[in-house]
Amino acid sequence: MNDSTRTSTAMLAGALAAAIAGAGGFASPAHAANEKCYGISLAGQNDCAAGPGTTCAGTSTVDYQGNAWKLVPEGTCQLYGTSTEEAKYELPGDREGSLEPLARDVPA
């Protein structure tokens, strides 16, 4: 057994003893505490509406055919800084979006 291993073993044993002695004293993690406070009825921000799910329903939300190449991000990222230089992108080829909703046929 070399010196570094011995040191390591002693250190581990000491650290473990300290950790066990203090095991009851750790606060619950900040985000877990928050999520408990929110309760599970708040949709979208917690475990209740977590991630994508399937339904057998259609949607009346109309997808926009337009694309992001003409858009500038405009959410909370503006609080943290968006490079306006970066926002002026070159459009690759003739890619352009019109942001028109999909046409739907009038019922026969």
Partner: peptide, 14 residues
């Protein structure tokens, strides 16, 4: 179901 402006009904369960 939802009713679209053009009268189409969508099975939206909404």
């Amino acid at each position: 179901h939802a009713t679209e402006p053009d009268g189409l009904l969508v099975d939206a369960h909404d």
